[in-house]
């Protein structure tokens, strides 16, 4: 099964719709609750990151019996120092993002914690693609 969602820059009214939709689908498919939780937490963190930092992008989710692969690809500023971004507490979030309750610098570390595979490709001034895999078996 394949699903695609659009990400709109700075739209915190709708941010999380994609993750919510994926959560409902996984519930309907009977995926184990623990796997649903880590999948949607990782996807939600990536979705919020893209809404907060990028100029727009897409989310592609592929689900089969063995795994869930989520690709969040954005056009945006990119991540100048990925090592720093992976450290807990490092954040470049704007005041608006912090008002929404985010920007604590926990997003990427939390994605890593909740996924089995994480690949981040980023180019400054071009964008970032985050590929996350959760194995179900």
């Amino acid at each position: 099964m394949h699903y695609t969602f659009q990400i709109e820059r700075g739209n915190f009214t709708d941010a999380g719709q994609a993750s919510s939709s994926v959560k409902r689908t996984l519930k309907q498919l009977g995926v184990a609750p623990a796997n649903i939780k880590r999948t949607v937490v990782a996807l939600f963190e990536a979705e919020i990151n893209a809404v907060a930092h990028a100029y727009g992008g897409t989310i592609d989710v592929d689900i089969d019996g063995e795994k869930i692969v989520m690709v969040v690809a954005d056009e945006g500023p990119g991540i100048p120092n990925l090592d720093l971004a992976m450290q807990e507490g490092w954040s470049t979030a704007s005041p608006k993002v912090r008002e929404m309750g985010y920007g604590a610098g926990m997003g990427l570390p939390n994605i890593k914690k909740n996924t089995d595979d994480l690949k981040i490709e980023t180019e400054v001034g071009v964008g970032t693609t985050v590929t996350m895999t959760v194995y179900l078996v």
Partner: peptide, 8 residues
């Protein structure tokens, strides 16, 4: 986002 986070 309080609700979205609570949901996730």
């Amino acid at each position: 986002q309080t609700m979205r986070t609570a949901e996730m």
